[in-house]
Nucleic acid binder design. Structure first.
Lengths: 195, 195, 195, 195
DNA sequence: GATGAATGAGCATTCATTCAT
DNA sequence: AATGAATGAATGCTCATTCAT
């Protein structure tokens, strides 16, 4: 990477980090491009070197956090589905938790119309389920589509509750706990003796 | 009702209906007070006769729809919990459905910071559960708080998925179907022979 | 006075008193006709029964206070000029004092363009001076016009200083004290032995 | 100065000059930002590049004029107090005169609540007086505070009279003339033989 | 690439005034 | 005389975006 390229990268990083800080505090709608570039210590115009529209920066702020989760999941292929989903729920909650209410809210609002996040999450979860079917953890006749949606529903429901609570809910609060075992119970191949 | 009062009512109705139409199409943030009053065929200032701030109209547009549900539930006290919750989920989806994506989105965004809706829904559902415990439908030791949150989680998750799909999901689509029986199974007093 | 007339008078009185209270607190420019009529407990339209324009109420609020002074002065014709002016300055300060900063400010601002107040005060003072000349208290060659202006200058200067201090100056504070004797000294017929 | 900077300066100047013209004609309250920028031939938004609020421009319009006076006074330290005060009154009147009624009125109204101008003028005048005491022009026991206020009272009274006359009073009109000698007479160290 | 002055459409909100009842 | 719903012009201010340097 040449010096020029390096400097450019620095500028972009400064902008993203400033934006992240401000959006976390006040939410995207209450942060102006002016605020961002001022905090970043760069010129207003520089913002538009990297982003066409103000909103375009959101994906750089928020998605990153969630992408980590999926990358980590890929390295856990040898674990059973319950462990994977437990982990997934745990990390998801941590993601929302660490991002803060407002950043999540902004991210939510700016993605509310596009299906991209939904599709992304769908793929992650359906992959986990398909793997489990291949490994005979879940019944062959499991309706992957339905089960995936059932899980996403819970995921998004948790996110919304957390936001509506203003973020004032502990990550381990039992009210937002998910009982993965009971969730999967009807679909499991070899019934466990538990219960 | 005198002539004056009647006319005043008409004016407010015109405004709410115009607002409803526009917000449904474009979302509150993209609708100006000017747009609303122009469509309603009244003066801009008339809007402020009835609402102090632009956002204040949202509750008149949206909340009504959801309140109906709860009123109806009260009339169903003789039914069993599964029927009640089935009905509740069905009506909730219909509510979101008939309101349209954007109106729901607006409503959501303008209520995201206050816990009022969460509390309202919490009360409705925990009442249903408590009734079921009294009627010996659910185990005495059921953790009402947890179960209520589990149901709300699904409710809100569904709402979010539906919105993220841009409203293009059929109300009967099995992906957003809720299996109330399985949901309650671990808490039921007399185990059914099913499964 | 008939019953009708009496009621009408009550309404007007309510309006003036409400306006007075509000203007005293916030200044006319920050008080709307709505505020006034709401506090008065009458309909907005009633305001326009008595006043053509919003500003028209100011004279009813403010001038009254100052008119008293002049009426009182007329009853003091037998006193010497120094007593009269001492009294005049004292009452003027009391007037500004009791009206409050904002009402005075409003009154000032709404009369800044018209000469009426200036003329009114001019007449009052020049009358006092002319009387004094007749009574041989002041020299026959006294330039009435100049002396009147000299006194008004001090009067208005005091008022302005008082306002600029936000009204937080004591009515007896020596900084806004006027030494009438020294002021008149060069114009007095029979030099006093004082000093 | 770079081209950019130079241009920026031009823009600000255009705005101030346009504002000055309009405020002189109609008073700040009757001039909109739109009017100003239209006359200046710049975009409305440009106004807010230089001023946060509309009122903020007043100081740029008005204060300048008065600051000149104080700067000039500093260069006159070798003159006697009567010359200095004569000069001060003369320049003050000229300042108000050249600013126009409405600009002064605006400036007055926007400073009426803050003591800054009063304090500024207080300092200027008390400096002159203290110098005079040091130079044995005035008695050592002179109450500086009182005398300063006495002078300011006249200053502000003159300003108010001038404004109330709609500016239609000649700067040399004897009615707004100040007899500095008589004003200082009681405080002078070595009594002149005049009178 | 970086800058930041300039833009100008856009918008929420206020409020004096009117007039039918 | 009293009402208060309706009016709609007026206005301060924001801010995403452009572009000459």
């Amino acid at each position: 990477m040449g010096k020029r390229e390096e400097k450019a990268n620095q500028t972009k990083t400064k902008i993203v980090e400033a934006a992240r800080t401000l959006v976390r505090e006040k939410g995207l709608e209450n942060v102006s491009v002016d605020d961002i570039t001022k905090l970043a210590g760069v010129a207003k115009g520089s913002f538009y070197v990297y982003y066409k529209k103000k909103e375009d920066i959101i994906s750089d702020i928020g998605c990153l956090e969630f992408r980590y989760i999926n990358e980590e999941l890929e390295k856990m292929s040898n674990l059973d589905i319950i462990s994977k989903l437990d982990y997934y729920f745990k990390r998801y909650k941590e993601g929302v938790f660490s991002l803060g209410v407002l950043i999540t809210k902004s991210w939510l609002q700016n993605n509310l119309n596009c299906r991209c996040k939904l599709e992304y999450d769908y793929n992650t979860i359906s992959n986990i389920i398909n793997d489990a079917i291949k490994n005979n953890e879940l019944k062959k006749e499991t309706d992957v589509d339905s089960l995936t949606y059932r899980i996403i529903t819970i995921l998004y429901g948790l996110m919304l509750i957390w936001i509506m609570n203003g973020g004032n809910i502990d990550i381990n609060d039992k009210r937002i706990d998910v009982d993965v075992y009971n969730l999967l119970f009807p679909f499991m191949e070899v019934k466990d003796e538990r219960i």
